[in-house]
Nucleic acid binder design. Structure first.
Lengths: 194, 194, 194, 194
DNA sequence: GATGAATGAGGTTTCATTCAT
DNA sequence: CATGAATGAAACCTCATTCAT
């Protein structure tokens, strides 16, 4: 029996437990029982703070997404743009390689419900938008070639995501620096020599 | 009441129904009830052909994965390698943009069970292997630059997957040809001018 | 696909299979599938000969009960009565120690349905009646002491049944001759010396 | 909707309901539905206290077996041994003549599953052991004749069981005292006069 | 605010039985 | 007469949610 706690603190306690459980077991395999056990809280208490299992999942997702989005720094045009882009890729990659984060963003969140899909859609849409904006900026600065920059932005996102995915979900070893280097090389030289 | 059918045909009828239902509702939301309703068959009939919901899902997954894997042609060194690579990317992309396929491969199959994860792991692992092999071939032929070809292979896979993902799952419009063109450009020139 | 057979023969084929399966697995664990598989006959064929699983069980039970009842010889007053009684006990005991028979009579048949209970009730009732009749005969001949001969008859039946039960169902080794000897001693001397 | 109850009490309520239902309908005909209806409790509540239908049956069986075993008093060598044996037989007989008890011990428990069989096997095995021990004691005291005391013990058990069986299951009227008297006479004098 | 026993709709699976071929 | 695919009622069990204490 937990002593009465400030509401905010109890919520966070539950959110932390839920994130861990969802990441470990996935949304469907995780039960409310697992979350409250992890949090050391009674069943009824859970429903004092969250309306449903879906609701807490949704909140967990928002937190994770916000954290990840927050790891990206806006690009300062005055500075070394490439270095900033590199730093951003590296930051995102490192944050996303946390297995908890990866699982939530890549696997469990899709298809749970409409709301969850919307969060993801917004997140990835936003990510593509940001990359595209950066590319357009680069285009104007003359450091980005011409082309369909929206698709290009998706490609960049895809390169990052896939390495996260294979690393965190498929159990392959992934070295963030190697990935950053390779993506950098890819972006500067492409892959093929004609 | 369905008439008696050759076993093979009934199995396929059920597999088709299941693929549609799983793609539409996801593994967890889909019930055996939905599958048999879709197939117009009694509950018992389902269990005459498949051991469980998981079992039919597994078979659906294998079929989809095999179809997709089968759409890739081995590269003939004698011919135009780039054209063949382009054709392969285009073929996979087109096949995967089918929303049923996309949903199964990208979302629903992850985390259902160990077996399903294994099918996916094998599939994506195999895909990376093939791309890497092709890149190594290109390297020996002198058409591929140096670098960490495994990570590069993941990047290529990621570019394809992300466009499928955003197109089929996130509801953004995706034009296969634009994607192929852009990936091609990406591979030949990179994205940045230094 | 079995060739067409004389009806009688097909019935017996099914009855034999059923007896074996019921004795091996028990009524509830045995499925119609097991019976037809054992008989090497199609599912529909089964229902050409028997109305239901219960019906065939009922017939099996009747056959077994009749066989066992038939192993008892009426006592010839002119001959050695004790010897005849001994022979009867021995015959019944030997027949009943067949595990198939034992299981059907002692365990599986009780509680399957009203009809089955009726068959058993009739069988055991008849057995008690016969023993009682024999005892009454003995009483008139002066070789049986006074007492409640109905209860005594039940006791005799119980002695036999228990040894069968422990032997066939509980897996204890039972030697028919030792049992006959002991029952004989029991009947002639009792167990206690006052 | 039942009010919340101490766990122990709810368990017992369910055990009682289950014993009644199993005795009335038999293991296979009884559904969890019948038990919860009898107990006036929701389906989920049942599974809060027992893992499965088999599990509760097993517990019911153990309780019944323990009760019956507990009705037997160890024999005090200092006292009137025969009287104590008589009292034991009478106690067991009376307890076992309860139709609920009889049905569970004689019919429904056999063949439900391995565990249940094991409980019965242990129970009857133990009963025979105890009787045999008592007989051996009597033998040393000189009040029991020579012979195969194990078989003799089975015979005694059989006499008791058969009268219970016929009384409770086969619907014949059974008077405990008449049975005790007759078994007593049987043990002291046997049945036959030579 | 915290508790946890109780709930019951809904899921998966079984298997005796039918009937068109 | 034999076949076996099809049937569907009914069984068992899960787990997100409620609510009286």
């Amino acid at each position: 029996m937990s002593r009465s706690l400030p509401a905010e603190q109890r919520r966070n306690q539950l959110l932390d437990a839920a994130r861990m459980v969802f990441a470990r077991d996935g949304y469907h395999r995780a039960g409310v029982s697992d979350i409250i056990e992890q949090a050391g809280v009674a069943r009824g208490t859970f429903y004092n703070y969250f309306d449903s299992k879906r609701a807490i999942f949704h909140e967990v997702l928002v937190v994770v997404v916000d954290d990840l989005a927050g790891s990206v720094q806006p690009i300062d045009v005055g500075g070394d743009i490439l270095a900033q882009a590199r730093a951003n890729v590296r930051a995102v990659l490192t944050a996303a390689l946390d297995p908890q984060v990866a699982r939530l963003l890549l696997a469990e969140a899709v298809g749970v419900d409409e709301e969850g899909d919307e969060v993801l859609r917004a997140f990835y849409g936003d990510a593509v938008d940001r990359i595209q904006t950066a590319l357009e900026l680069g285009r104007r600065l003359g450091v980005v070639r011409e082309g369909d920059l929206r698709v290009a932005a998706r490609c960049v996102l895809g390169m990052v995501k896939e390495n996260v995915f294979l690393g965190a979900l498929m159990g392959q070893q992934v070295d963030p620096d190697a990935v950053v280097d390779e993506i950098y090389a890819f972006m500067t030289q492409g892959l093929l020599k004609l």
